[in-house]
Design a protein around this nucleic acid. Structure first.
Lengths: 250, 250
DNA sequence: TTATTTTCTTGATATAAATCAATTTAATGT
DNA sequence: ACATTAAATTGATTTATATCAAGAAAATAA
């Protein structure tokens, strides 16, 4: 039933694009979830974005963008949390690169760089995503310095954290890695000490580069030691300081 | 003796800056090792860079930029190869992030991002480095869209490769990692199948995140199997295909 | 040059983490 | 509500890699 409703939504959005409807339901000018860099666009530039963008709903687990396809757009997460991940060996192995939430951009690293999508993206929970033609995005970059500067800011902000996470991961052993992941999730992704989200043991494993059995064991350790609580999907951080300590000590 | 000469060089360059000398020996307009993004600057903009930049010589092993200090400049490698690395636990542990060579920029990821230097940089061999005030760099970004676009291009180009290397590293075991490192060094850093450079076993270990003993063992394996040759500092790749295979199979 | 420190090398041992295997629990589709 | 598939769990075993230790070689300083 829900599935059905969902497909209708996608269909409607796609139809809108196909039909060349010039007025979107959601107007970029008044959008509350605008990415930071769009603040520097003029009203007319925003109108141009409004006219050419589409907004799509993705159901939990759906693939939003597939590694290896041609780059054609920049995405902006409006609702939900998207998971950015790298596939290896024909998707047999996966490494989660980052998470993106409301107001955050996806695909910035493809601009003027690769014509091929470098990372797959899927919906961790139900997501609403705005899709902007990359040619429009690049046109705006070429005509608006304030915008370009803000895009540089966004890129640096994103990659700095990601690279750091993965480099640190290399240096830590399992307990430190899971502690790190929990801290990142609570402080930067969900921004709360408890979060109810379909974040599986496997996601933990793919985020921290370990086997899912190891992730299970360590999460169990943490639960036994009352550092966290885990009940049917809800994760709650009970002892931030101890997690920080475990993270720091490797 | 050489040391002495070197210190004089640095001193001269620093003196030049202090004295406010308006003509540098090396003029940015005619510089052959310009970073790509400088190609889009006008002659007057390049003259401005020329006037305010300094060119410094660093001896093999010297620290060019130290993690944790305040960001004040963007660096351009003119000669030699610089090593960008992250320090952990008060520099007891180190992870090499990237290498930069002639025409490549250092510090792009700090622009409009962190006020604190994120990675240390040292000279792998003798280096000549141009130092540009970050305020001038940011001023140019704000006034020249072509320049901003080229900087985005450079940033994406750099970070894409770095992130990929480190994510893949997490997934591979020792042989695969060393093979990967050798391929990166020969194809992208030194751009030759043999290179004579002070690249120690420890550098290999810090680049691929393993103990230096493991690096020694695996390099020995590779030498015994005639995949590489190593004699007093010279490294020569003998069998690219086999290395590729080892890299791919993990 | 000799002395001294650092890096390299190798074997033996310890340990962390993956893999294998088998069961339980939860999620999903019909 | 049932059947089916997928995810979580746990113990036993194996494997990869780090650590320890001690000597050789090389680089650097005196």
């Amino acid at each position: 039933m829900l599935m059905h409703k969902f497909h209708l939504c996608i269909f409607a959005a796609r139809l809108e694009k196909i039909m060349g409807k010039t007025e979107n339901v959601h107007n970029c000018v008044d959008c509350a979830n605008k990415a930071d860099c769009f603040e520097h666009l003029s009203k007319s530039e925003l109108m141009e974005v409004s006219k050419s963008k589409v907004s799509i709903l993705y159901k939990k687990g759906e693939i939003i963008r597939k590694q290896g396809t041609f780059v054609s757009s920049i995405l902006i997460v409006k609702k939900g949390i998207a998971k950015v991940y790298k596939e290896f060996d024909h998707a047999e192995n996966v490494s989660i690169v980052d998470f993106r939430k409301s107001g955050q951009l996806i695909g910035l690293s493809d601009i003027y760089n690769a014509s091929i999508v470098q990372y797959s993206v899927s919906a961790l929970n139900d997501c609403e995503v705005c899709i902007i033609d990359i040619r429009l995005f690049e046109k705006l970059l070429n005509s608006n310095t304030g915008f370009a500067v803000d895009v540089i800011k966004s890129i640096n902000n994103q990659t700095c954290g990601i690279l750091d996470f993965h480099i640190q991961n290399n240096y830590k052993q399992l307990h430190g890695r899971i502690a790190h992941a929990l801290l990142i999730l609570s402080k930067h992704v969900f921004e709360s000490d408890d979060f109810n989200i379909p974040f599986t043991r496997r996601d933990f494993a793919e985020f921290t580069n370990m086997s899912s059995m190891s992730a299970v064991r360590i999460l169990k350790n943490f639960r036994d030691d009352h550092l966290i609580e885990m009940n049917n999907g809800l994760i709650r951080i009970l002892d931030n300081e101890k997690l920080e300590k475990i993270f720091k000590n490797g």
